[in-house]
Simulated assay, not measured.
Amino acid sequence: MRRPLATAALLLVTAACAPVGARVAPVATETGQAERPAAYLDTETHQRLGQATPLPPEPGSAAERADQVATRAGWVAPGSPRWTLAQNHAEISPALALGHFDCPLGTRLSETPPPALVRLFSRALEDISAAARVAKARIFRPRPFVDDPSVATCIRVDDSYRTNSSAPSSHATAGIVFGLIMADAAPDQADALTYRGRVIGESRLVCGLHYAADVTAGQQLGYELFEAIVATPAYQADIAQARSELAAARQLGHTNPTCAAERLALGLN
């Protein structure tokens, strides 16, 4: 049975861990008023994709029992390299989330975040949050640590986590969308970047914050969202600029000092 473990790293990532998606910083306008970044998709698309997201298994069913087994199989020892990486992955605010993709690119993007990439992540996160709210509103599923108080979580949780449905995982949705955006911006590292995007969702399982089926459903929503986002003219304009920015950033040769720890956590050494 796992036991909670308080660490300094836990406190560093807690503030970024909104259950339905990180709050995006407002963008200042010429009038001095703040505006949220515009989503790429319309409300109808958010509704359609959110409603189509798979529901969790029926309580007491064989599928639910299998989901519980898969969930427990995803847990790791608190304080292990994979646990620490999962803590880091709790951060999905756009400028900082870029750092999750540094290692395959040989960059340190969160040091000086490229504006077009931040804009892509920010606008996509609006779509992710909107569609996830629709999906979560259909059914309430308690999170693993609510069902079983002995389950350790890799971040500090408050009442918002207890009242927010575990299904689907919006962090898993964000991981897929962000990974696919980065793969579109740097096709030569597409496999490694999309893999990092999947791992962000898997980290929610490691963290004790979602069941395995919630992560899978969130990832499916991510694929569907990206397919819709990439078809918009606004996305195409943003990604064209992001490719140029990212190419320039890679030329700088900056590296992220956490890459050795990431490789160890993911078994890539």
Results as ranks from 00 to 15, higher is better:
61 S>A: 07
89 H>A: 13
164 N>D: 12
64 E>H: 12
10 L>V: 07
159 D>A: 12
222 G>R: 08
219 Q>D: 14
112 T>I: 09
166 S>Q: 11
186 A>H: 10
193 L>D: 08
223 Y>G: 13
114 P>T: 03
30 E>R: 08
192 A>R: 13
75 W>C: 01
225 L>V: 15
148 D>R: 09
21 G>R: 01
141 R>H: 09
163 T>K: 08
68 Q>K: 07
149 P>W: 05
18 A>N: 04
263 R>S: 05
211 Y>H: 06
227 E>K: 14
167 A>I: 13
55 L>R: 13
9 A>E: 00
83 W>D: 01
261 A>Y: 07
98 L>R: 05
230 V>H: 03
2 R>H: 12
50 G>V: 03
110 S>K: 14
96 L>I: 01
167 A>W: 01
172 A>G: 15
211 Y>M: 15
105 L>P: 00
95 A>D: 02
45 T>W: 01
93 S>P: 00
138 R>S: 10
13 V>A: 04
141 R>G: 05
33 Q>E: 01
143 R>D: 08
32 G>M: 09
127 D>H: 09
249 A>H: 01
181 I>A: 00
134 V>C: 02
28 A>S: 05
215 V>H: 07
19 P>S: 15
157 V>P: 03
5 L>G: 08
266 L>S: 06
11 L>Y: 11
260 A>W: 15
237 A>L: 02
97 A>Q: 09
133 R>N: 06
85 L>D: 08
126 E>N: 04
24 V>D: 02
133 R>G: 06
126 E>R: 12
210 H>C: 10
118 V>S: 01
12 L>A: 10
252 L>S: 14
161 Y>N: 14
38 A>P: 10
121 F>T: 00
220 Q>M: 15
229 I>P: 01
200 I>T: 02
192 A>I: 06
116 A>M: 01
173 T>Y: 05
131 A>M: 10
214 D>H: 06
11 L>P: 03
142 P>L: 11
166 S>V: 14
204 R>V: 06
98 L>N: 00
119 R>V: 09
226 F>P: 01
263 R>L: 04
147 D>V: 13
65 R>L: 07
114 P>M: 12
39 A>R: 07
99 G>E: 09
9 A>L: 00
196 R>A: 03
27 V>W: 07
51 Q>Y: 02
93 S>M: 04
190 A>D: 13
57 P>I: 02
70 A>L: 12
187 P>H: 11
155 I>G: 00
232 T>E: 15
203 S>N: 14
251 Q>D: 10
264 L>G: 00
6 A>H: 04
7 T>H: 09
40 Y>I: 12
135 A>S: 15
57 P>N: 02
139 I>N: 00
210 H>R: 11
167 A>T: 14
135 A>C: 15
179 G>E: 03
245 E>K: 03
206 V>A: 03
266 L>A: 10
105 L>A: 08
104 P>Y: 15
143 R>S: 14
159 D>R: 13
41 L>H: 03
239 I>T: 10
230 V>E: 07
35 E>Y: 00
219 Q>R: 12
78 P>S: 08
138 R>W: 15
16 A>M: 08
4 P>Q: 11
176 I>K: 15
249 A>K: 09
50 G>H: 06
258 T>W: 00
41 L>Q: 11
197 G>P: 06
19 P>Q: 13
226 F>R: 06
156 R>Y: 14
238 D>K: 04
260 A>C: 04
72 R>P: 06
115 P>Y: 11
146 V>L: 12
123 R>N: 00
238 D>S: 02
231 A>F: 15
